[in-house]
Design a protein around this nucleic acid. Structure first.
Length: 139
DNA sequence: TTGTTTTGTCTAT
DNA sequence: ATAGACAAAACAA
């Protein structure tokens, strides 16, 4: 599938998504099919929650951060500092964990922004803006 | 507004 | 063990 910012691909292992790539097309296309429909719906605004099997690997800290991010409602945003406060850690560490997220959109790290600004995004800030726009988030 | 300091985690020596 | 990087925040001036 493609967006205004380019193609989106899903890397799959044993039926589970292990990585979502923004702006990259991976062959063969049939690997994408089980996930294509949900992502298409997400991009046209008719789907708010991605629900397919995934395999997530990371340190205990990373998983705790990602778990919190998973619970951020569609269209809502919170700051790195707010997550840090919940986990009793630093905003810097939260950003570090998010930068290692291999499943953007499924783990909606685009909903985490800086106190005054957008913060960063692994696949480029244009994607972060695009995803927030799709969700109609108010900043 | 701008610099400077503080901060926790990860990666690579 | 240790040093440097990093998608941030708080503070001083």
């Amino acid at each position: 599938m493609a967006t205004e910012l380019g193609p989106v691909s899903v890397l799959v292992e044993r039926g589970k998504a292990v990585r979502i790539l923004l702006g990259v097309y991976i062959q063969p296309a049939e690997f994408i099919d089980p996930f294509k429909k949900q992502l298409d719906e997400y991009f046209n605004g008719s789907r708010k929650i991605l629900d397919f099997p995934v395999r997530i690997e990371g340190s205990r800290f990373q998983k705790r951060v990602w778990e919190i991010v998973r619970r951020i409602p569609y269209g809502a945003v919170i700051t790195y500092g707010e997550i840090a406060k919940v986990l009793n850690t630093s905003p810097r560490a939260v950003g570090m964990a998010l930068s290692k997220n291999l499943l953007p959109i499924y783990i909606p790290c685009h909903r985490v922004i800086a106190k005054d600004g957008l913060g960063g995004f692994s696949e480029g800030l244009a994607w972060k803006k695009f995803l927030l726009k799709v969700e109609g988030a108010v900043l």
